[in-house]
Design a protein around this nucleic acid. Structure first.
Length: 586
RNA sequence: GCCCAUGUAGCUCAGCUGGUAGAGCACAUUCUUGGUAAGAAUGGGGUCCUCGGUUCAAAUCCGAGCAUGGGCUCCA
């Protein structure tokens, strides 16, 4: 269901009406409470309140119970229309409603206001709603959580209490949703990276900074190697740049004006302010400017796995998905106006291929165009936007247009991928920049011998390695495809006398570039298999006992429980090598 | 940064109204050498997040700080 279908659906009305019923129950409990807004959202609804005290879990349970009773009363939702004066009188005790009325009047002094009555509750509301509350299934509504939320999302305005609820057409659908939430919880990358010994965080050394353990670092190495190989094939060159730069650099780039609050405080080096880099672009530009560039040199495609630091507010850090230090898979493309169309298509194709290689098949594009306040010639914006759109259409991927949603310095395409649980994650961003080439006065010598301004495109395909890794973990639930798995095969000796043979096989596998380890613990075979499968999620379990040692074979078991039977070590190497090459899930 | 909640062993958690700590998993040792999802016994391991306060006595109550979580906000 897309967004406009959702807005017209019965479920949308059910959720919207459930929000009203909830407000009714809350006001019954707190008659002096003020109501703000309460819309349907993805999977449910919320309502914001100003209440005399903070709500507790117990309050939620009580409100939820009262909602069920109110629903069963078969309350009718009745729409009425009022003029401004009547509306202001009706909501005289509701300051947030009065503010909304005033705003609506500001937009159109002739506005009439619609209200909905249900039971003892009346709300300023555009609707639509269900006919009566029995259209809401009382057993398909559940209150989920309380959270703080600023009135109108503005941190200078009062903090309200928001109650989130979920509502469905039937109890069965509610159960399905709750089950899905369980699945989301099970795949939480924060849990899995700890359990699988991949990455840790250390509050005593600074929040939002990831520490990659040997197994996590192995995976990162595989991702980086793959990324570099692809970039070589894709016509990129690599650069490496420093982690800090003098204030001059960030003044010139404009970061100190526009981005300062996301930058770490400067450090004093010999009386000069040095800043930790939040972005790589200014450094790449300095390389560009290190010599005169001719149109014959362009396009230049310069890639760097560049580690940047951004000061994220303490409340927004979230596992690997929102950190303060991370490595962008960054690149900048500098080209002539004539080349731009070809370059945009090329980078989009390249990105799609890369994302698909990691197992993301469904990809959505978002094109954001020129906002009100923007730099750069309108003609350049037009050309850039047109080339972005043509590239999307040429690739035949679905897209949405965000008119006026671009950054002030250029239009962009973002790509979102759908994961195994149906969630969309933004990974790739391809952004034009009409600002930095001006600020740094970048030029190239054209055919006419004059200096021209190059086009500049920023692009990060995986986004950041940390965030991408977290998304990969959730997508696969830790059971990575063979090519990514930090340990691809585990040798499981049945008794201690088989350890020596297991180690021999392990060594053969290592020489064949298959990552293998022997479980030489004193556990029984069943426990070793359980460990390898459930905890370590290893693609291949190779059981070796007397029979295998005598015949030079391994008994292969997959994570799925499937048995490949006893095959020779050479046969296994051929099988695994093939699966690695194909990037099979196995 | 803001609101609310949480912070006890490497991990997951218990510890009622204050009387200086427990379980399971993991780890170590020993026994067991087992053919496809947990063999057994014994043992080691804790500044109960930090600082301050109340109290004869604080993991427990209060305050502040830090961190984590659910959100809000921000992401030129």
């Amino acid at each position: 269901m897309n967004s406009s279908e959702y807005h017209e659906s019965h479920l949308y009305k059910v959720r919207h009406s459930a929000a009203h019923i909830m407000a009714e129950a809350v006001l019954e409990k707190f008659p002096e409470g003020k109501v703000a807004i309460g819309p349907p959202i993805e999977n449910g609804f919320y309502y914001d309140f100003e209440l005399p005290r903070s709500l507790t879990e117990d309050d939620l349970a009580e409100i939820e119970g009262r909602m069920r009773e109110l629903i069963k009363e078969k309350q009718s939702f009745v729409r009425e229309e009022l003029d401004a004066a009547a509306a202001q009188e009706l909501f005289a005790a509701q300051p947030y409603k009065l503010e909304m009325i005033a705003d609506l009047l500001g937009a159109d002094p002739e506005t009439t206001f619609s209200i909905y009555r249900s039971g003892a509750f009346v709300d300023l509301c555009r609707g639509p709603h269900v006919e009566n509350s029995r259209e809401i299934s009382p057993q398909a509504v559940k209150l989920m959580s309380v959270a703080g939320a600023y009135w109108r999302g503005d941190e200078k305005r009062p903090m309200l209490q928001r109650i989130y609820g979920t509502a469905w057409e039937s109890p069965k659908e509610l159960r399905k949703h709750l089950h899905w939430l369980e699945e989301v919880k099970k795949r939480d990358h924060r849990k899995i990276i700890t359990q699988m010994d991949l990455i840790s965080f250390h509050e005593e050394a600074g929040p939002g900074m990831a520490y990659w353990h040997p197994k996590g670092a192995m995976m990162r190495k595989i991702i980086e190697d793959f990324w570099r190989d692809r970039h070589i094939e894709g016509g990129y060159d690599f650069v490496h740049t420093p982690h800090i730069g003098k204030a001059w650099l960030w003044e010139t780039s404009g970061h100190l004006d526009f981005y300062r609050e996301s930058m770490y405080a400067p450090m004093d080096v010999d009386g000069q302010d040095y800043y930790l880099k939040p972005m790589n672009c200014p450094f790449h530009i300095l390389i560009y400017k290190s010599s005169l560039r001719s149109y014959r040199d362009l396009p230049l495609r310069w890639a760097e796995l560049g580690t940047v630091y951004r000061y994220e507010k303490s409340g927004v850090l979230h596992g690997l998905l929102r950190v303060r230090g991370f490595t962008q898979d960054d690149a900048h493309i500098f080209c002539t106006p004539e080349q731009i169309e070809g370059e945009v298509l090329r980078v989009l194709k390249f990105s799609l291929a890369l994302l698909r290689a990691f197992g993301f098949e469904e990809i959505q594009a978002y094109l954001a165009t020129r906002p009100e306040k923007a730099v750069g010639e309108p003609a350049r914006w037009e050309q850039a936007q047109a080339s972005l759109l043509r590239a999307i259409q040429a690739e035949g991927i679905g897209y949405e247009l965000d008119e006026g949603g671009g950054a002030f310095y250029g239009p962009k395409i973002d790509l979102k991928v759908r994961d195994a649980l149906g969630r969309y994650w933004q990974l790739t961003t391809i952004q034009f920049d009409f600002n930095l080439p001006e600020r740094f006065d970048m030029t190239f010598a054209g055919e006419d011998g004059h200096a021209h301004r190059p086009y500049m495109v920023h692009r990060a395909l995986l986004g950041s390695l940390e965030r991408f890794f977290g998304i990969l973990v959730e997508h696969y639930g830790g059971a990575f495809p063979v090519w990514l798995a930090p340990e691809q095969a585990r040798l499981i000796p049945i008794a201690d006398r088989h350890i020596e043979y297991a180690r021999q096989v392990e060594e053969q596998l290592r020489q064949a570039h298959i990552r293998a380890k022997t479980d030489a613990s004193s556990s029984r075979m069943g426990a070793k298999i359980r460990q390898a499968k459930v905890n370590d999620k290893i693609p291949y379990m190779l059981v070796v006992g007397d029979r295998e040692a005598e015949t030079g074979t391994v008994a292969v078991r997959l994570r799925s429980g499937k048995q490949l039977g006893a095959i020779t070590v050479a046969e296994f190497i051929a099988h695994a090598t093939q699966a690695i090459k194909e990037r099979a899930l196995e």
